[in-house]
Design a protein around this nucleic acid. Structure first.
Length: 105
DNA sequence: GCCATGGCTAGTA
DNA sequence: GCCATGGCTAGTA
């Protein structure tokens, strides 16, 4: 299996529009690495450019917030600003907000 | 040897 | 609540 490239993750993530989200596992599967969810999280943590790569739009598989380099509180605020609603720490209507990823390669 | 995950079990109510 | 997974990095040789 070809290695997972950070650039591929970022490129795919950039296709997720404002107001929608994706998950660590979805990104992993779309790139042909069904078990690399955790590696995706680590790649997000090293995000070179938070203003270009919308890593705040990557959440946990169950609609939970996941993590964020600048704190999950800020992540939540940004997502709310982009139009998502929360019930406690879970995204409301998560399945409807979940982006359909275009499979790469 | 660390984790910004996720899936599966054991054990309680 | 445990642990497999996979990419990264600190720290030793």
């Amino acid at each position: 299996m070809t290695p997972l490239k950070a650039k591929d993750v970022y490129d795919l993530l950039k296709t997720v529009p404002e107001g929608q989200v994706t998950t660590y596992g979805d990104l992993a599967r779309a790139l042909g690495h069904p078990n690399a969810a955790r590696a995706i999280g680590q790649i997000m943590n090293k995000n070179p450019d938070p203003f270009v790569v919308p890593c705040h739009r990557v959440v946990a598989w169950d609609g939970g917030i996941g993590g964020y380099a600048f704190g999950i509180k800020m992540k939540k605020e940004i997502l709310q600003k982009e139009g998502l609603a929360f019930n406690e720490d879970t995204i409301v209507d998560f399945e409807k907000k979940r982006a359909k990823l275009k499979r790469e390669k």
